[in-house]
């Protein structure tokens, strides 16, 4: 997608008002039934499905002119995908954009929750590829809908238990299923399971799957429990390393290959978090002090 190519007449935030109303109604029902997947009639967006059209449609339905909008892709603000979505809304909704988590009012994300705790008044919009947590166990939509209706989640536990039998632990490390407010099993989108504890937060979380035409939501301060077993409790897990740039020991790290000789370093996947720490004077093993110059 190229924001510059969008021209001619379009409505505020691109979508027409009737489409926004339909999405808005789905969002309200999603908040009223936390973790339940509300069907909605997904619209064509000027970008391919893999680009997070579900998240983009939610952002289009909730953005107000006064918002400050941030987009992250696996924690980074500067990937092609994140930059394109940011430019798109700068153009069609004339919103201010920011890379600072603390200053954003709406954050659209693919595959991460920001390290910094979100506060009241902030909304996190997730791009979701496959909203149905039971899809890999049961391909039929009719059947999975029935399973949710009957709260029949035994199959999911069997799958996790098979993981334990095979690998000695629950091997699922992304899109780790959760139970919301003791009722619906939900796919938190492909965030690392390291992020799962942060699904209980003060901000509003909205999830959009464009191709699969589903919207779901978690209100603030809602109970979100990662599925586990008494003898195999959920473990957050992270590499026993610190960020080589900012020295953070508690953040989710990406492994980056630095040269042809196989050199590598670990850096915060949340680029804003890392920047903020470095600006505050923290230096990692391979970092350069900000004020060294």
């Amino acid at each position: 997608m190229n924001a510059e190519q969008i021209s001619g007449e379009y409505n505020f935030a691109y979508l027409d008002e009737q489409t926004k109303r339909m999405i808005r109604r789905a969002l309200l029902k999603g908040l009223a039934i936390p973790g339940y997947q509300v069907p909605f009639a997904s619209r064509e967006m000027p970008m391919p499905y893999g680009w997070g059209t579900g998240g983009v449609q939610i952002s289009a339905a909730i953005l107000v002119p006064e918002d400050r909008f941030k987009v992250i892709d696996q924690g980074a603000d500067d990937t092609t995908n994140a930059v394109s979505i940011r430019r798109f809304f700068e153009k069609v909704a004339q919103v201010e954009t920011t890379e600072k988590t603390a200053e954003a009012t709406v954050i659209q994300t693919r595959h991460r929750i920001p390290e910094r705790d979100l506060h009241e008044g902030q909304v996190l919009v997730y791009q979701v590829p496959i909203p149905e947590p039971l899809r890999f166990l049961e391909p039929s939509e009719v059947e999975t809908r029935k399973m949710h209706a009957l709260e029949e989640y035994g199959l999911m536990h069997v799958k996790l238990y098979e993981d334990i039998a095979r690998h000695g632990e629950i091997a699922t490390s992304y899109a780790y299923p959760v139970k919301v407010e003791g009722r619906y099993v939900m796919d938190p989108s492909p965030i690392p399971k390291f992020d799962n504890p942060k699904l209980e937060m003060a901000g509003i979380q909205l999830f959009g799957a464009g191709r699969e035409q589903r919207i779901y939501a978690i209100p603030p301060h809602t109970q979100v429990v990662s599925l586990d077993f008494e003898d195999y409790p959920f473990q957050r897990m992270k590499a026993p390393k610190c960020c080589d740039l900012c020295g953070a020991g508690e953040s989710y790290l990406d492994e980056v290959i630095t040269d042809d000789a196989g050199g590598r370093m670990y850096v915060c996947s949340d680029t804003d978090f890392c920047r903020e720490r470095r600006e505050a004077g923290h230096v990692g093993a391979l970092g350069v002090a900000e004020d060294a110059a």
């Binding site: 505020f12 009223a32 002119p65």
Partner: peptide
């Protein structure tokens, strides 16, 4: 509508 909906969304969320 966007501003009014945002208030309605915040209301339903809180």
């Amino acid at each position: 509508s966007a501003r009014a909906f945002r208030a309605a969304l915040e209301a339903m969320a809180r």
